[in-house]
Simulated assay, not measured.
Amino acid sequence: MNPLDQQFDNDLDDGKEMTFLEHLEELRWHIVRAVGSIAVFAIAAFIFIREIYDKVILAPSKTNFWTYRMMCELSKKTGFTDLCIEKLNFTLQSRQMAEQFTMALTSSLMIGLLFAFPYAFWELWRFIKPGLRPNERRAARGAVFYVTTLFFMGVLFGYYIVSPLAINFLANYQLDPRIVNEFDISSYISTLATLTLGCGLTFQMPIVAFVLSKIGFLTPEFMREYRRHALVVILVVAAVITPSPDIYSQILVAMPLALLYEVSIWVSGYVNRLRLKEEQELMRRDGYED
């Protein structure tokens, strides 16, 4: 353990309060360790960047990608031949001298951020947790696990579902057959990263509901009342995320988002029940109840 962390824990045990500068120093060490973990994973990713590009980053641009193969299997069983993707009508190119090297650095940094996310969030949580009340700590127990799990579930959903559907549509969309789709590698990477990381953040909906309910800004009654409005918004978001015009792709994306909304209602109800119970216990302790 870092000496500053040990001193911070000792101060908490002794009932001492840290000064503002001590809090800043503590925060600095947490940030240094989080950034260091990102750097370690980024360096490892840069060493194996060619293998990563071939097996992971460029995989959705190939028709033998797992998602495309599963869609073809599904088309055979259902009879919807449009589901099978047999051709991706585009090529990737690099039109600037340093573009491939720059993209290797950028991709390594994003991969480092992705894999270091659990540890980086844990460092942030270690700084926040001591400032919480005992009941708040109990309510937020397992926060690192849930945040990390939801984040990686969203990333996998974005990588295996949303990104292939979007890439397929954009690659095969043509205003005129004479116009050839030749995409810059930077444009491809930007699209893949935006969709993948965007889904990772979108899957944090239950966590956002937990925080908003904890501060009293959100209630399960409110979420149930506006459930229909939320479903409309979810369908719109699904339509934006998946440019593909077929309704099957949009439903495929909208279903997990709708499920997350229902989970968020349960989370909000759980938080509100805990808060009501704590208020009743406080009133009994203060003698306001008969």
Rank of each mutant, 00 (worst) to 15 (best):
R273E: 14
Y53P: 01
Q250H: 11
R50G: 05
C199Q: 12
A239Q: 00
Q204V: 09
H23Y: 10
P130S: 10
P256C: 09
K277S: 12
V32Y: 15
S94V: 13
H30V: 07
A44M: 11
S244I: 05
V267C: 03
V144Y: 03
D9H: 11
A45M: 04
L124E: 05
Y160L: 15
V271C: 02
K129W: 09
C199K: 08
G15F: 08
F8Y: 05
S187R: 15
T148R: 04
Y270H: 09
W29M: 14
L4T: 11
L231P: 01
S268L: 13
L88I: 07
R285S: 10
I31G: 03
P130T: 12
I85G: 00
L4G: 06
A171T: 00
G131H: 10
F101E: 12
T219M: 04
S249T: 07
R275W: 00
V147M: 07
R69P: 03
K87I: 14
L132A: 08
F80S: 00
Y119W: 10
M283P: 01
A39Y: 02
V211R: 11
A39M: 10
C84N: 03
E289P: 02
L218H: 05
F152A: 06
R273D: 13
K55I: 12
W66Y: 15
W125M: 09
A42L: 07
L83F: 14
L218K: 03
V162A: 08
A193Q: 13
L92V: 04
Y248G: 00
Q93M: 12
L195W: 00
F41L: 08
N2W: 14
M1N: 06
I128K: 10
N10S: 13
Q96A: 14
F152V: 06
Q204S: 05
K62R: 15
M283V: 10
R95C: 10
G158Y: 06
I247F: 13
F210Y: 14
R28I: 02
M110L: 12
I161Q: 13
I179Y: 04
S37T: 15
L257E: 01
R33T: 11
L21E: 09
R275L: 06
S107K: 01
F152D: 02
L58W: 09
W122Y: 12
M153V: 13
L282H: 12
I43F: 09
N172K: 03
A44Q: 03
V208Q: 07
E289N: 09
P3L: 11
Y53G: 02
I189T: 13
R28A: 06
V144K: 05
L92S: 02
R284Y: 09
A193H: 06
Q96Y: 03
I265V: 14
P164Q: 08
G79R: 08
R133P: 01
F90P: 01
A44V: 13
R178I: 15
L192D: 00
L260M: 10
L170K: 00
E99H: 01
F48E: 05
G216Q: 07
I189A: 07
F157Y: 10
L231N: 12
E262C: 07
T106N: 13
N64F: 13
V253Q: 04
A45Q: 04
V147N: 03
R95I: 15
Y261K: 05
A42Y: 05
V56F: 11
L4Q: 10
E278V: 05
L274P: 00
D82P: 00
F152E: 03
